[in-house]
């Protein structure tokens, strides 16, 4: 028995309504920039996942200046077991560990952290000796003096 035209219309209306409902969360979040409630989830899969992570580059400063390509091997790690860095504090901690691994060396560590869809600027630490505890203080003092002098 074939369904009546009323049944057909009802099924089509239900199909259209439910398909429209499926779009609600994503339209709210991705087009209108509104929040997506649990009852209308936006399909943002792995949206911004990992953007809090930072890449670390390490450099030896001074006369023997060079880039430490596989810095993680100095910490006894492999590339896949390398530490994760998400803050300046963690960057400096890794820097100090590198200082211990290469005693008597001046080392700078630079992090480039992610942001949605790209990368932030690298940290302004390319010439900051992380092995010298007073270096950070000196730099802060120099900046203060420069600010007081004015442009």
């Amino acid at each position: 028995m074939s369904p009546t035209s009323r049944v057909v219309a009802l099924r089509l209306a239900l199909l259209a309504t439910l398909v429209a409902y499926m779009q609600v969360g994503s339209v709210r979040a991705l087009v209108l920039n509104w929040a997506d409630p649990p009852w209308a989830k936006a399909w943002e899969m792995y949206h911004g996942k990992g953007r809090e992570q930072c890449r670390l580059d390490a450099y030896v400063l001074g006369e023997d200046a060079r880039r430490l390509d596989d810095w993680f091997t100095l910490l006894g790690e492999t590339r896949t077991s390398a530490p994760k860095i998400t803050s300046d504090k963690e960057r400096d901690r890794i820097g100090r560990k590198l200082c211990k691994a290469l005693p008597g060396t001046s080392i700078a560590v630079v992090t480039t952290c992610g942001k949605t869809g790209g990368w932030k600027r690298p940290s302004p630490t390319r010439d900051l000796d992380v092995c010298d505890p007073a270096a950070k203080l000196r730099r802060a003092r120099e900046k203060l003096i420069e600010t007081e002098k004015g442009p």
Partner: peptide, 18 residues
């Protein structure tokens, strides 16, 4: 970049190949 962020999070941490 988004794929590289995932690689850092799940595989290589701060040692992302450059």
């Amino acid at each position: 970049a988004a794929i590289e962020h995932l690689v850092m999070r799940y595989y290589v941490g701060a040692a992302l190949p450059d």
